[in-house]
Design a protein around this nucleic acid. Structure first.
Length: 1194
RNA sequence: GCCGCGGUGGCGGAAUUGGUAGACGCGAGGGACUUAAAAUCCCUUGGUAGUGAUACCGUGAGAGUUCGAUUCUCUCCCGUGGCACCA
């Protein structure tokens, strides 16, 4: 053989040639038909290229080559995702700096990738660890900071003690750190976050129209976790909420009106009244001081109500004023008393302290005004400026309650007609007042989130998460010790323990809340089955319709109130009784059974005596046939005697799913127990007996799988089944026994025994149904009931329909070294500031020592003074840097933007180029990144869209998640020693054969098994292609058969490419190869088309053959993909399929254009067909043009 | 438990809007070439019965719709991915 195929030589030659001739390095500016093919850039691990990654690259590469052959300007970039804990941990392990290690591994990766025959553009390689790259990672942070999409907050976070850093929720897999498998601790820490939750709805809705793999979309959908429901407020039962009336010491009418209006929002239960004795004062001379002082003093003692005075002075006049009558105090007003504010404050200080003591140290009484502030701890502060200063956030933060009473006047003073405002305008104007008063006079409430507002009437208790901030507040003194203990205990449990051990625990707080729909007071518990991180951290518990609540209620003996009747309630509590075809039993026993269970809410069905003319079991089957559709579901069947067999057969034959199956039969028959009889398939009598009657056997396995809960065998002779004869004497026969089967054996039953055997029948029902015991919801279906309840709550302003998401903000801080520093500077004066663009990048110092993670909650950079000390970009004063670095998933969330303009020093990328090349056309990668990289990328893209950098918000037009490669059916792992090294196979069989094999194995999205035998197949194919060359004859003209096959293949392969069905595309090409192989000669023209068709899969051999035809340019440099010619692919003859009654009986070669008439004639003449239709009547003939004819006979 | 995907020969997998089930490849068996081996080429290869033509069965199980179901509908089983004391 002249051209013995040497894959190593050829593949090396072409890999070098492609780079040298820049075959795959397009001019991005000049390109007219851009096609951006992207694979997930690899993390350059020390192990080298992983076959899984290599497979994904191949999927992209094949597509890229196909598009290129179709004349597109294809861009297939390559780079390295080298920052991150992954690299750093490995560097730690081998005791080398990450930089040194990566410099080595990247070289290795480059070598591996460039020899694999991929069409990558090496001129635009990127590496996320270079300052040129991470400058823009930091820039993105500063932009997000500007937009309030990056922020700092204290939160309960996942701290990984293995990696010594906090992690994002997405980086916890199965409850452990995705990197080092440590169980993370929950720690409250202050960290930087990206506000991904702002895009929750958008991220979710976007999925609907995106052309991404379903598994990826479904993973994202689940992660975002949208649920619709309602937020409901529960008023806490406490003294504060008992306030019914507030007397105003003084003030004119308009002031009272304003307050009334405010209180409508604050607490509509509270009435505002002027102390009756106070005489109204004229509007403009708001000076009822003397008067009011006396009046307040006068009413004091008479009224056991709280007082609000707009004039502080009322409180310190008169020695006999007893503050204990006053439950809540708000102060405000002008300094008109003749005392200085300081003096006022001093005077009322004791008063506050006294009240504070009386009401459990609660800090609720504070006042604003003027020059002096009295703080809860008794401290008095003299202010420099008046109101302006008070309004600063800082001071408000220190005060628990702030009453901007004065603005009541200020509003008036502006001259606006506040009484003719619309309600909305008014509310907006007075919102600060409303909020302030709400703090003290508003009812103290707890909010819950529920997806089942329709079950509110069934809420019989209330649960707060142990981490809930108000737990201590509401706990009564008596319970506080227990609660403290419980909080401590559950805090010590890890998240994993908490979810693994599902045994419910909890503790009563001593407090009660009021169920708003029926004003019932329900107890408040603390229990760790309620999580602080979801919803509001508190729930209303409806034990009748929630399994967890049910379990808890059972354990703590809390009442269970059914408020939803399941739609199929007939089934849920249905007992079907199949008896033994005996008159006596039905007479004596069934009335009792019906009465007893019916009284307990069960629906007892005892079918009438079946047709006595049919043989035995068939009588039952005959009668049950009609019942099967109505009954399939969650019923319980009790079978006696022959009824046991009927029950089993009923379940088996009709596939009726049941909850419980109770079989009562003889304790022993022919040496067999009832269990044995049943499992033998013929429970009633002896096998012989049944065979005599020709009874079918029961497939016991099938029965077993259809019974959800229990199968119980009861022997009718068992002594433990005692009937409660006294109770049921009236329905039992005089002998107080029940006889079955004409006295063959006696059954004795107790009701409790049966109830015990039906364990789940009295559980909770979670599904939809009809509302009952629910006041205004009664009779409504769940969905309507939900709506009605929500509008009721909204009308009462105690709740509203809300949508809740599981998704939480992305924590991006890492207390590590190997990442881009968070570009933030802390200045004592100016606070946290983002570094200006001109000062970026904030360089990561190159450390030889001291870069290891510390574990004290701060990154190692905190100890690098040169790095930490800086100046404030705003005021120039001394400042310090943020010591943490950013999550490496941020690096990879935007890299494809940089690829198109990797050397741009002034901009993240050129927007003109972006407009042309973005978004990415085709992207492939592993689905393990579904909620990490792929979600973050979508978020960053949306954020960049919102800063007007780009005009799209889906980064990848088409994304496909590739399946896993298994070796011989098993997961690859180093420990098993079954890792496939692409380089090794590249050398052994060649990359052409290896890549084709990977694609040929199966559909791109599915897992498939790689075998060494299998790869030989594609290797043989490549060799066969090489050998075909011998058959080429320049002047030869191919037979029609070959041309026809070629064009059919063009069509199918093109279609396959468009849907990424690479496996079938390869199969088609193999077929074509086999056809060509049978020919003696092949024309050059056919050969050329053939080479182009196979070139995406086997680029090196195709190039080699192409060159030998005398071509100077690469096969990939021109638009060469062959056009499909329908005429040439057209068949003249087909095999007509002839069916009789839908069964294939004959194939006849006919013209493709054959008409129905002709086909029918030919078919009916066929000897084979005649045989099948002989003596039968032709009912109808179905003809599918160009395919088949079906003759229907009877 | 909820949401998604899947179940077809000894194996990986094909089968367009319901129309020849098992393409293509691996493996296995037989043959040709060869001193021999490798490579290559040819034949057979879902099961059962039969020398054979052929017949019957067969796409996780069972029902249904249809002239006809791997494909559509229902019930159920198994595998797998995601979420999960998520209210």
């Amino acid at each position: 053989m002249t051209n013995k195929y040497n894959h190593q030589k050829i593949e090396k030659k072409w890999a070098e040639r492609w780079v040298k001739d820049k075959v795959f390095s397009p001019d991005l500016k000049k390109s007219e038909n851009p096609y951006y093919a992207l694979f997930m850039f690899p993390y350059p691990s020390a192990e080298g290229l992983h076959i899984g990654n290599f497979y994904a690259f191949t999927c992209v590469d094949v597509m890229a080559k196909y598009k290129k052959l179709q004349g597109m300007d294809v861009f297939e970039p390559v780079g390295f995702d080298a920052f991150g804990i992954h690299s750093e941990n490995y560097a730690l392990k081998i005791g080398e700096t990450p930089r040194k290690m990566l410099d080595r591994t990247i070289v290795n990766f480059r070598k591996q990738l460039s020899s694999a025959g991929l069409g990558c553009d090496w001129t635009r390689e990127i590496d996320t660890t270079t300052p040129e790259y991470y400058k823009w990672t930091q820039w993105i942070f500063t932009k997000l900071f500007e937009k309030d999409l990056a922020y700092q907050k204290e939160a309960l976070l996942n701290w990984c003690s293995g990696c010594k850093t906090v992690l994002a929720d997405e980086q916890i897999e199965d409850g452990v750190c995705e990197r080092c498998k440590t169980v993370p601790e929950k720690k409250t820490m202050k960290q930087w976050f990206f506000r991904i939750t702002k895009y929750a709805e958008k991220l979710l809705n976007g999925l609907e129209t995106m052309d991404w793999s379903d598994i990826t979309k479904s993973a994202q959908r689940n992660w975002i976790g949208r649920s619709e429901g309602a937020e409901v407020e529960f008023v806490i039962k406490n003294e504060r909420n008992d306030i019914k009336k507030i007397y105003l010491g003084t003030g004119n009418k308009s002031k009272i009106e304003r307050l009334e209006k405010i209180f409508k929002y604050v607490n509509p239960d509270i009435k505002i009244e002027q102390v009756p004795e106070v005489v109204d004062v004229p509007e403009e001379s708001d000076n009822g001081l003397e008067n009011s002082k006396q009046k307040v003093l006068a009413y004091h003692g008479k009224y056991d109500y709280p007082v609000v005075s707009c004039d502080t002075s009322v409180f310190f006049e008169g020695e006999d004023f007893d503050p204990t009558h006053v439950k809540r105090v708000a102060l405000g007003g002008e300094d008109e008393s003749g005392f200085s504010q300081r003096e006022i404050a001093e005077k009322i200080k004791d008063f506050y302290i006294d009240i504070a003591r009386k009401y459990g140290g609660r800090k609720e009484f504070y006042f604003e005004d003027a020059w002096t502030i009295l703080f809860p701890n008794g401290e008095i502060k003299q202010l420099k400026y008046r109101r302006e200063y008070i309004m600063t956030d800082k001071l408000q933060g220190e005060l628990d309650i702030y009453f901007p009473m004065r603005s009541l006047y200020l509003v008036k003073a502006t001259g606006r007609d506040i009484f003719n405002q619309t309600e909305e305008e008014w509310k907006k104007e007075f919102q600060p007042q409303i909020d302030a008063f709400s703090g003290v006079f508003g009812k103290s409430k707890l909010k819950v989130f529920t997806t089942r507002p329709d079950t509110l009437f069934g809420a019989t208790y209330f649960v707060m998460s142990p981490e809930h901030p108000l737990v201590r507040e509401i706990t009564t003194k008596e319970q506080s010790e227990k609660i403290e203990d419980y909080i401590k205990k559950s805090g010590a449990k890890s998240e994993l323990e908490r979810t693994e051990n599902k045994e419910k625990t909890g503790e009563f707080t001593g407090a009660y809340v009021v169920n708003p729909v029926n004003n019932e007071e329900i107890p408040v518990f603390v229990a760790d089955y309620v999580m602080m991180g979801y919803g509001t951290g508190a729930i209303m518990a409806v034990p009748a319709h929630d399994e967890r609540d049910f379990e808890f209620a059972k354990k703590f003996n809390i009442s269970i109130k059914e408020v939803v009747k399941p739609k199929n309630s007939g089934k849920d509590k249905t007992i079907l009784v199949l008896h033994g075809l005996c008159d006596d039993s039905s007479k004596h026993w069934f009335p009792w059974f019906k009465q007893e269970f019916g009284g307990r809410g069960y629906n007892v069905i005892i079918p009438d005596m079946p047709n006595p003319h049919l043989p035995r079991v068939e009588r039952w089957m005959d009668c049950l046939k009609e019942l099967k559709d109505d009954l399939s579901g969650n019923l319980t069947i009790v079978g006696f005697s022959l009824g046991t067999q009927a029950a089993c057969m009923f379940i088996d034959k009709y596939n009726v799913a049941v909850n419980n199956l109770i079989l009562v039969g003889p304790s022993e028959k022919e040496g067999k127990t009832i269990e044995e009889l049943v499992e033998a398939g013929l429970p009633r009598e002896s096998l012989e007996h049944s065979e005599k009657f020709g009874e079918e056997r029961v497939d016991w396995k099938n029965v077993r799988r259809l019974v959800k809960n229990t199968i119980q065998y009861l022997s009718s002779n068992d002594p433990y089944i005692e009937i409660e004869t006294e109770k049921y004497s009236d329905v039992l026969n005089p002998q107080k026994r029940i006889f079955f089967n004409r006295g063959h054996f006696t059954e004795k039953f107790g009701i409790d025994k049966i109830l015990e055997l039906i364990p789940d029948i009295e559980g909770c029902t979670v599904g939809d149904g009809i509302a009952v015991n629910s006041g205004f919801l009664d009779g409504l279906e769940t969905s309507t009931a939900k709506e009605k309840m929500i509008s009721w709550l909204e009308g009462k302003k105690i709740g509203k329909g809300v949508v809740n998401y599981r998704l939480r903000d992305w924590c991006i801080s890492r207390q590590r070294y190997w990442g881009p520093p968070v570009p933030i500077v802390y200045c004592a004066k100016c606070g946290a500031l983002a570094v200006f663009e001109k000062d970026l990048p904030v360089r990561l110092p190159e450390l030889e020592k001291g870069w290891e993670p510390v574990g004290d909650g701060r990154g190692p950079l905190a100890n690098v003074d040169d790095f930490m000390n800086t100046t404030c970009p705003k005021c120039g004063g001394a400042a310090s840097r943020e010591a943490d670095v950013m999550d490496n998933f941020l690096d990879s969330a935007w890299y494809f933007f940089r690829y198109i303009d990797p050397k741009n020093n002034n901009k993240i990328f050129d927007q003109k180029l972006g407009k042309k090349w973005l978004p990415v056309d085709f992207y492939v990668g592993g689905n393990e990144h579904a909620v990490l990289h792929l979600m973050y990328t979508r978020f960053i893209t949306m954020a960049l869209h919102d800063i007007d950098l780009i005009d799209f918000d889906n980064p990848f037009k088409k994304f496909r998640a590739n399946g896993m490669i298994l070796k011989d059916g098993k997961k690859m792992s180093k420990s098993k020693g079954n890792v496939i090294n692409p380089e090794e196979y590249g050398e052994k069989v060649g990359y052409d054969a290896l890549k084709t094999y990977l694609l040929f194995l199966g559909p791109l999205n599915e897992d498939r098994s790689f075998t060494d035998e299998g790869v030989r197949g594609t290797k043989r194919w490549v060799e066969k292609i090489a050998r075909l060359e011998e058959k080429i004859k320049n002047s030869h003209k191919d037979e029609n058969e070959i041309i026809n096959k070629l064009h059919k293949t063009i069509k199918m392969v093109t279609d396959d490419f468009e849907d990424q069905r690479y496996n079938t595309a390869v199969a088609r090409l193999m077929e074509l190869t086999n056809v060509l192989n049978l020919a003696d000669k092949i024309s050059t023209q056919t050969w050329k088309s053939f080479l182009v068709l196979v070139s995406p899969f086997v680029p090196s051999i195709a190039e080699e053959m192409w060159e030998r035809l005398g071509n100077k340019n690469s096969i990939f440099s021109d638009k060469l993909w062959p056009e499909y010619d329908a005429k040439l692919a057209h068949d003249e003859f087909i095999e007509l399929i002839v069916q009789v009654n839908g069964k294939l009986r004959e194939k006849i070669e006919v013209s493709i254009d054959i008409t129905e008439e002709e086909a029918k004639k030919i078919a009916l003449e066929s000897g084979k067909i005649k045989k099948w239709i002989e003596g039968k009547k032709i009912e109808k003939v179905i003809f599918v043009k160009g395919k088949l004819i079906n003759i229907v006979v009877k």
